[in-house]
Design a protein around this nucleic acid. Structure first.
Lengths: 152, 152
DNA sequence: CATATATAGTACGATATCGCACCAATCAAC
DNA sequence: GTTGATTGGTGCGATATCGTACTATATATG
């Protein structure tokens, strides 16, 4: 491996980690008291990707143990933000559906972020972000594929 | 605010969040059993930025409550990876120093990542990462400044 | 179809993270 | 200097996250 490859990867992921921490704090500050980014993220995923998925599929998507997802979904269900229905194709499993309340919760959270975005757009050029996003997408897809099949 | 600004920010930070989850899982899998990325990150920060900082400064750097940092540092100290010494300038506070063992722990963890990097460099062009990193740095710095002084 | 193995989900205990309340030291105002 | 407000750190209880072990169902093998 060329000498600088490790440093290159490490520097990249260090920046990713710090930005994630800072942006997570921004979002969490806007969520209703008691809710965490983990709750929001699951709702967002159910909308962004697809609802009706099983808890295990969600756990894999978020790289968390299935016990963690069981717990997160239980909280969301307790608040009526998702519905768990039996999976007719497999009696062991369930399917997770986002409710109208859940959609509203997610949309409200995003709306609450508007003042932050309004402030940040003076410091960070949106065009700059838009320019970087496809590159990040490629990295995300590559990491996803690597996780699914580390051998290849 | 132009219509697409919110979407642009949201898409960017969504990718950041997913990449962070995936890379965190890669690192955590290589850490000695029982250690988490939070432990590694503090050690890395003490080396990357500077050691001898106070727990509160570290807590702010990581955007975590000071109680969390107290706990993390206690674990690191219990394992001899950091040393807490009184701060002569302020008798309320302490200063955190990384030990030789702590440096070795961090270096070992990075070395353990080499097989992952070797695998990933076939999926992700290091030059591509290197090209994006300065842009990410700018975003990180902007978020940092915003946190320190949201008004300006 | 009987049995072995694999998979989906949960129960439970351990550690991590967090918010609140508190103490000690420092700083600010006078 | 005295007093009030602020700051650095910790104790404690609540929730989050995680690993291990378990049950129920599904799949594979003969």
């Amino acid at each position: 491996m060329p000498d600088r490859t490790l440093e290159t990867f490490f520097a990249f992921f260090t920046e990713i980690g710090i930005i994630e921490q800072l942006s997570r704090a921004l979002l969490e500050a806007r969520l209703p008291h008691g809710f965490l980014v983990s709750h929001f993220s699951v709702l967002n995923h159910l909308i962004r990707v697809q609802d009706g998925q099983t808890p295990l599929v969600l756990a894999r998507a978020f790289q968390v143990p299935k016990t963690t997802m069981t717990h997160t979904l239980a909280v969301l269900e307790k608040h009526g933000l998702v519905e768990m229905r039996p999976n007719p194709d497999d009696k062991r499993s369930k399917r997770v559906w986002i409710t109208a309340t859940g959609r509203a919760f997610r949309d409200d959270a995003i709306a609450e972020l508007l003042p932050d975005i309004e402030r940040l757009r003076h410091r960070i050029d949106p065009a700059h972000l838009a320019q970087m996003t496809p590159g990040l997408e490629e990295v995300r897809v590559a990491l996803d594929r690597d996780r699914d099949d580390p051998a290849r």
